[in-house]
Simulated assay, not measured.
Amino acid sequence: MIKSILITGSNRGLGLGLVKQLLSIPNPPDKIIATCRNLENAKELREIANKHKNVHILLLDVTDFNSYDDFKRKLENILQDDGLNVLFNNAGTYPRVTKLELLNSSHLVNAFVTNTVAPIMLTKTLVPLLKTAAQKNSDKPIGSERAAIINMSSILASISENSSEGLYPYKCSKAALNMATKTLSIELKEDNIMAICLHPGWVKTDMGGPNARLDIEPSVKGIVDLILSVNSEHNGGFYQYDGKQLPW
């Protein structure tokens, strides 16, 4: 059982799907904190929160780094003294730039800010809450019941699996996120906080597009099953939604 989980970018797509899936499991988390940038664009998430007292919505633009301290205070008010068990850095951007000739520097900079810098800096801000959870749950094994960082990556970030041209902003920023995840797993190991990166599959979302092979439901079901089962052997790894380990 996970006591608390924070999911960024929860107003639609995989983030919203993860909230729904977590609510459907036999022992849902006591506190699901779902973030969005704009409440008006999060109608379905608001409806869910109105029906489920364990769902809390917090406003967060992950690229607004000056807002992180205030966000942390609001999060602490929800978590009280229990800390945060799972930080799921889900929010991301997918610049649809396919060719080198169409690429400009802003495509790359914006992608790195959202997909790489934001997850690292938000993790830095919230590590004290993860440490609290790890200490409070010292009787639990390494994993999501204790303290875990889950970073949403992509198979497109795999250097060894890359066989396609273009998509430089997305591929490069997610590959950098993979490196950050691996580094976090080493640095935070002594604090009993694990870190992994996940590939959700090619999913039919606004980002994945209508031609994607996978619906949201099987993807988020697999992701939640994996989150519930991760242990110290998963630490620092790169995994697919169905639990398969992926090459860097």
Rank of each mutant, 00 (worst) to 15 (best):
R12G: 03
L14C: 01
L16N: 03
G17S: 00
L18K: 01
V19W: 07
K20L: 02
I25H: 02
P26L: 02
I32P: 04
I33L: 13
T35G: 05
N38G: 00
L39C: 00
K43E: 06
L45E: 04
A49D: 02
K51D: 07
I57H: 00
L59V: 10
T63L: 00
S67G: 02
D70C: 07
R73E: 10
L75Q: 03
Q80A: 07
D82E: 14
L84A: 07
N85A: 04
L87Y: 09
G92N: 05
T93W: 00
R96M: 13
T98Y: 15
K99Y: 12
N104A: 05
N104M: 04
S105F: 15
H107N: 15
L108P: 00
V109L: 09
N110M: 03
N110F: 00
T114H: 11
N115S: 05
I120S: 11
L126E: 12
V127I: 15
K131G: 08
T132N: 09
A133K: 10
N137Q: 13
I142L: 15
E145M: 13
R146C: 02
A148Y: 08
A148Q: 05
I155F: 11
S158R: 04
S163H: 10
E165L: 13
G166E: 11
L167M: 14
S173R: 06
A176W: 09
A176F: 12
L177S: 10
N178I: 15
M179G: 13
E190M: 11
D191F: 14
D191K: 15
N192Q: 15
N192H: 14
N192L: 12
M194W: 06
I196W: 07
C197N: 15
C197W: 05
P200S: 10
M207W: 08
V230G: 04
V230H: 08
N231G: 07
E233K: 15
E233A: 13
N235K: 14
G236R: 10
D242V: 06
G243F: 08
P247L: 11
